[in-house]
């Protein structure tokens, strides 16, 4: 297990290093001078020089790259040009919206998808199966931001059950804040749940075909118990993979959904930063997003080893 953990950790660090290089190159190397880009065409040379100094743009690429990554390792993401506060403060404040939203959506989607997938698989070819497969086919075709708008139209404008947008902050009380995340999380969860339910179904069908499940049934176990005690654990592996692979979609989706509901999360931060040409903020938020994707894939890899002990020895 330790060796497995070590090799995974090494590849995690490598991925992060390469990703940071790519982001650094895209933001600071490709477009020429970020300072004059940020100030626009009519900027005085003196102002540009002063901003270069302030942004730490003096010095070679290698030096700046090391300063940037070194700073991030200590939690220092630089200072936002437009907000005049440390970028890390901005990001942490926004994370308190984006992260709960993503996790909420993940919980909703798995809570719907796994039972739905199991239900469909255990009633293969019957109306329940057809219903689940039809619904998920539709769910995969609906763009999350459009679903969000439809939810707003129905539940906020027509029924008045929820606010159409905005976030009161966690200070307003846990449930008040959570309530404002219900519609956003639901809109994020639809696509996710559709994919997961389909993977759960086909994975369970495949496992139910295996000899050891047949043996369990022959031994006298009911279908229900055979699924619960024998088939589920193995059927979960592909499901976990998809949860991990889909996580990046969930993060990207959250950024878009925040726009629909005017939630003050990372998505709003990064889009404002783009229009205000605040490249330092863009660079750091993108790094955080990519870091989250890589980290989740690392955790999924580890969870395989927990679910399937054979993987610990193989590597």
């Amino acid at each position: 297990m330790l060796r497995y953990l070590g090799s995974r950790l090494l590849s995690l660090c490598l991925s992060l290093a390469v990703a940071s290089l790519v982001i650094f190159a895209a933001i600071e190397v490709v477009p020429g001078d970020p300072a004059s880009f940020m100030l626009g065409l009519n900027a005085e040379p003196d102002t540009v020089a002063a901003l270069r100094q302030e942004l730490g743009l003096e010095g070679g690429y290698v030096e700046r790259y090391l300063a940037w990554t070194g700073g991030m390792l200590h939690g220092d993401f630089g200072t936002s040009y437009t907000y005049r506060v440390p970028v890390s403060e901005l990001i942490i404040a926004r994370l308190w919206v984006s992260l709960p939203l993503t996790i909420f959506a993940l919980i909703i989607s798995t809570a719907i998808a796994i039972p739905a997938g199991v239900w469909a698989a255990s009633r293969r070819g019957r109306p329940a199966d057809i219903l689940v497969m039809g619904t998920t086919q539709l769910g995969m075709a609906v763009p999350n931001f459009w679903f969000a708008m439809i939810l707003v139209l129905i539940f906020a404008i027509n029924l008045g059950w929820f606010a159409a947008g905005g976030f009161p902050g966690w200070e307003a009380g846990f449930f008040t804040a959570l309530k404002s995340l219900v519609l956003p999380a639901l809109s994020l969860a639809l696509f996710q749940a559709s994919i997961l339910a389909r993977v759960m179904r086909s994975s369970l069908l495949e496992t139910l075909d295996q000899d050891y499940v047949r043996t369990a049934r022959a031994k006298g176990l009911s279908r229900r118990l055979a699924i619960r005690n024998h088939a589920m654990r193995n059927a979960m592996i592909p499901v976990m993979t998809i949860v991990g692979l889909q996580f990046s979609n969930l993060i990207a989706g959250a950024i878009i959904i925040e726009n629909v509901f005017f939630l003050p999360g990372l998505g709003r931060l990064v889009f404002q930063a783009i229009t205000q040409r605040d490249l330092i903020v863009v660079e750091s938020v993108v790094m955080i997003l990519v870091f989250a994707v890589i980290l989740v894939n690392f955790l999924v890899d580890l969870s395989y080893a927990v679910i399937d002990p054979r993987l610990r020895r193989r590597r």
Binding site: S15, V18, A19, V22, I23, A26, I27, V30, P31, L245, S248, N249, I251, A252, I255, I256, V270, I274, L279, V282, V286, L289, V290, V293, I294, N297
Partner: peptide
């Protein structure tokens, strides 16, 4: 390939748009 997978299209679009 794995590396590119860590960049969702939206993030790629953000990087590209920030420049161009």
């Amino acid at each position: 390939n794995d590396m590119v997978f860590a960049f969702p299209p939206l993030v790629l679009a953000i990087l590209i748009t920030a420049n161009f």
